[in-house]
């Protein structure tokens, strides 16, 4: 992204609506900056100005017994999770991106490793309040854990990269933090599949298999003794490979062994989920693998700004997606062209 001169820092939804309406009227484009941790995803965009969401931070309503929280989009997820943990709850957000913001996580559709047990983030987005490209403040979903009142726009916002509007606040469904958690490094990954019923996470970290277990003390003890291996208290998340060009592979989980056998660098593979995070020296290194992965119905995301298309082959519904976006951002001012297909 080129450095933009103007930065707007709205402190309320009305401020945000004004900024957007003004830019839409003048057809000036905007980037949305939360923590910047997902900037690597998608086509880089040069915009006329930036919306900084840090003025929209903070927990608004935390109802631990309802398992819900309403939180401003600019809130750092590390801050949110510590506040929730004090009430014995978690929003199951990505575990190692503390500086990412709620808005950024939802806009990029990011999930944590615990999706193996609790499902992806999008399954917990109960309500989204956003301002469309042309400045309309709209709310969808509701603050209850189960809801079919109207179209499920919260899911559409999850992974929309700003194309449907700037997210202002989100209501999440929460889970209780288990009484005890452990990380077990196992020698025989097959035993995990046979001995453990639905682990919280199950990772292959460059060839070493880690499984995260949670539950009552008694239950965890029992599982650990069945499983064997080296046990560490708590959830010991791996560090993402840093050197080189960032890459994420998404495949039906049965194809993970083939994928990791073709990688040269360090990696984190989410067994039973189908996602591998890795890095490559030069972006073109992924091209052969990408062709095979796409043939399996998967995708390889490559950090933007290199000589390789960051998304690969766009989905066949591109025209439909473009027409939906046109209803929410008619002058296409929010991060235009960032999505697959350059829409």
């Amino acid at each position: 992204m080129t450095v933009s001169t103007q930065v707007h820092r709205p402190e309320s939804i009305d401020d945000l609506a004004l900024v957007l309406r003004d830019h839409s009227d003048r057809e000036r484009s905007l980037a949305v900056m939360g923590g910047g941790t997902h900037r690597w995803m998608g086509y880089p965009v040069a915009t006329d100005a930036v919306v900084d969401t840090s003025g929209l931070a903070g927990v608004r309503v935390f109802e631990p017994d309802d398992l819900t929280v309403v939180v401003g989009a600019g809130t750092r997820i590390g801050d949110l999770e510590s506040e929730l943990a004090a009430g014995g709850k978690t929003a199951v957000l990505p575990e190692t991106d503390h500086d990412a913001t709620v808005g950024g996580v939802i806009a990029s559709g990011a999930s944590g490793y615990r999706r193996a047990r609790f499902g992806p983030t999008r399954d917990r987005v109960l309500e989204v309040t956003a301002v469309t490209g042309d400045g309309r403040a709209i709310r969808s979903g509701g603050r209850v854990v189960k809801n079919v009142t109207g179209y499920d726009l919260p899911r559409l916002y999850t992974g929309s990269f700003g194309s449907l509007g700037v997210i202002e606040s989100v209501c999440f469904k929460l889970w209780p933090v288990p009484e005890r958690t452990v990380t077990v490094t196992v020698d025989d990954p097959e035993r995990v599949r046979s001995e453990v019923h639905r682990p919280m996470a199950f990772l292959d970290v460059s060839g070493a298999h880690r499984v995260m277990l949670g539950g009552t003390g008694r239950a965890v003890d029992a599982e650990v003794s069945q499983l064997g291996g080296e046990v560490v208290e708590g959830l010991d998340w791996p560090t993402r490979p840093r050197h080189g060009v960032r890459v994420e592979v998404r495949v039906p989980p049965s194809h993970l062994p083939t994928v990791v056998s073709r990688l040269n660098g360090d990696y984190i593979s989410q067994i039973e989920v189908g996602i591998v995070e890795t890095t490559v020296e030069t972006a073109t290194d992924v091209l052969a693998l990408r062709a095979d992965v796409e043939a399996l119905g998967g995708a390889i995301l490559v950090e933007g700004g290199h000589e390789v298309d960051p998304w690969g082959t766009p989905p066949p519904t591109l025209d439909l997606q473009r027409r939906i976006i046109a209803e929410f951002d008619p002058h296409r001012i929010i991060e235009p062209g960032r999505l697959p297909g350059g829409i």
Binding site: G109, P120, R155, S160, L320, Q321, I325
Partner: peptide, 18 residues
Amino acid sequence: VILGGAAPDPIGLDLRGV
């Protein structure tokens, strides 16, 4: 049309979800 797919988090808008 086919919306979504067998791999996690298909790229683009989540039309399946809506």
